[in-house]
Amino acid sequence: MKLFHQLHNGSAYGFLDKFPKKPGVYLFLEDGTPERIGRTNNLSQRLKNHLRQDHGSAAYAFKRARQKLGLKPTYRKGSGRKDLQKDPAFVEIFRTEIERLKTLSVKYVVVEDIAEQYLLEIYSAIEYGFDLDEFGNH
């Protein structure tokens, strides 16, 4: 797949660099090792949102913090996302994960067509051996 090769072989940028306000697919790397793939309608805004101290925007940091504490996702009253944001132990790990994101590098490819974004995201996840749990229905 041509777009995958563009993404994989593309330049890596610092997480805090400027990104285009265009739709596309992005890849997080830690020390050159791919770690997460995502898609968005606005690369610049989405990457900024990953650094917000908000469970809805910084979903990847939130997921990693939850995993570090061995917590499974739940929609039960009293144990959801908003409740975890009130737990000091969780908040500390969540903030640490947001700071860690700033040390990662990012590759991206602009992809205007939404179907191509979806296909590139899942194809890349398979190629990199990522967990496919994020592609299920919610």
Rank of each mutant, 00 (worst) to 15 (best):
K2N: 14
L3E: 11
N9Y: 01
G10L: 08
S11G: 10
G14C: 09
F15D: 09
L16Q: 02
P20D: 10
K21E: 15
K21H: 06
K22C: 02
L27N: 04
D31Y: 03
D31K: 12
D31Q: 12
G32Q: 08
T33F: 15
T33S: 02
E35H: 11
E35D: 14
G38Q: 05
R39T: 04
T40R: 00
T40H: 01
N41T: 15
N42V: 06
L43A: 03
L43Q: 00
S44C: 10
Q45A: 06
L47G: 05
N49S: 12
H50N: 02
L51M: 07
R52E: 14
D54W: 04
Y60L: 09
A61F: 02
R66Q: 14
R66H: 09
L69C: 06
K72N: 13
P73E: 11
P73R: 11
T74Q: 12
R76D: 13
K77M: 02
K77A: 13
S79N: 14
S79P: 09
G80M: 09
L84C: 04
F90M: 10
F90C: 04
E92R: 12
F94K: 08
T96K: 15
I98K: 08
S105K: 07
S105V: 02
V106Q: 00
Y108K: 02
V109F: 08
V110N: 01
D113S: 00
A115M: 13
E116L: 13
Y118E: 09
Y118K: 14
L119K: 14
L120A: 03
Y123Q: 09
Y128F: 11
E134C: 07
N137M: 12
N137T: 15
N137S: 15
H138A: 15
